[in-house]
Design a protein around this nucleic acid. Structure first.
Lengths: 148, 148
DNA sequence: CGCTTTTTGCGACTCAGTCGCAAGAAGAAG
DNA sequence: CTTCTTCTTGCGACTGAGTCGCAAAAAGCG
């Protein structure tokens, strides 16, 4: 399941610049990794890939940059039902939220955009007087190929 | 926000017995902690409370018992938007799934049962041919008291 | 260029969770 | 109630994710 690649590469960098955030070599490397990812990456995979661009990038810089992007609301943090250990996965936040379905047998991640999900969030905001900043719906089970 | 306490205490123990799972002192202690919890507990809090019942309970026994209960579908594992560190919280699984809303300012957790959530899950199963075993919807934002 | 502020790499650290193992307890069968 | 097998436990060592304080380095403004 490829990630939606509807935005121009380099866009993350522009978005940070617009917010007056300083641009550096390590940041550029990390941002480009996130922007060109074709699957969900965790922090150590981002580190490894970023190092192919700038070999001096440090683990803590990756974590600090991920925190920055989270605070800026530019990426989402996922668990993907802890299919592989306890870590987190990251993906660019683009327009509409989507649901992540993780197959507990084959590990495939399926993404799904749903109008019902959008109205559910609206209902929550209305009925609970809650101002939503992030909403994460993750589902675990068996995908069409794995359910017998 | 109290958890729904609609089941008889001791029920978890019965459910494990019905499945032919061996009952032991440490397990009884851990189960009773989970059953009588009035808020969401993480593994180390469960350990501390279980030790007031049976002082010899070990950390790894808590993790092993939580794994067992997860595999049996008797508890749900939550992140609560990582309000306090990276750990997980646990709660009994009772009938209907509910949504967890975490206030990022005051830390309050609000639970919400929604018919829309139920139809969203049905829609997912139908449209994606996916067999859902667990569904976790967590929301982060500001609660009614904290949104200024 | 020079100065202030932010970011970085480093190394040490914390904390959640895991694992192998030998000893101990559960429970079925006699 | 004893025996036997199987499962569970405590322990201790370990892994891996993520954090932190610090001094050095880079950003970007005038």
């Amino acid at each position: 399941m490829p990630l939606p690649q509807t935005e121009i590469p380099g866009r993350l960098q522009t978005q940070l610049a617009e917010r007056g955030i300083r641009m550096t070599g390590p940041r550029r490397a990390i941002l480009s990794v996130i922007e060109t990812a074709t699957r969900h990456l965790d922090a150590s995979q981002i580190l490894r890939k970023a190092r192919t661009v700038d070999a001096s990038v440090d683990r803590s810089t990756v974590y600090r940059t991920l925190d920055l992007l989270k605070r800026q609301g530019l990426i989402d943090e996922l668990d993907l039902m802890h299919l592989n250990g306890e870590g987190h996965y990251y993906e660019r936040k683009l327009g509409r939220d989507h649901i992540h379905m993780a197959c507990l047998r084959c590990g495939k991640i399926t993404e799904f955009v749903s109008r019902t999900f959008e109205s559910l969030k609206k209902q929550l905001e209305r009925d609970c007087h809650f101002h939503i900043l992030v909403a994460r719906l993750e589902v675990g089970g068996y995908c069409s190929a794995c359910r017998r």
